[in-house]
């Protein structure tokens, strides 16, 4: 986990976007750094829970239980991950 956190920075943005696309089961390129949840039918609350869970276990990006449902789009996630 520690190692993954230190890896943030180069490529991290791409990894986060790829992970979101995987959970949403959408083609590559569908999600960009400005995508908002409400723009995509696939991005509902169930998908959001899975995204938050996978961000932590796969990329070490921690979003607290309280914040989890406040995420409105990719930019919120990038902010929580320390990339802006």
């Amino acid at each position: 986990m520690e190692l993954q956190v230190r890896e943030k920075g180069y490529g991290m943005k791409e990894k986060i976007i790829a992970l979101i696309e995987e959970i949403l089961m959408v083609p590559k390129g569908t999600v960009t750094e400005t995508t908002m949840a409400q723009e995509l039918e696939e991005w509902d609350s169930l998908a959001q829970v899975m995204i938050v869970g996978e961000l932590e276990s796969k990329l070490g990006v921690k979003i607290s239980l309280e914040e989890a449902m406040e995420i409105k789009g990719v930019s919120d996630i990038l902010e929580r991950a320390g990339i802006s």
Binding site: L46, M50, V52, G53, L65, A68
Partner: peptide, 18 residues
């Protein structure tokens, strides 16, 4: 470690990871 997920369990009773 990889099969279960606390985060999704607490958020939505989703026991299993992706």
């Amino acid at each position: 470690e990889n099969a279960f997920s606390w985060k999704t369990w607490y958020l939505g009773k989703i026991l299993f990871s992706n």
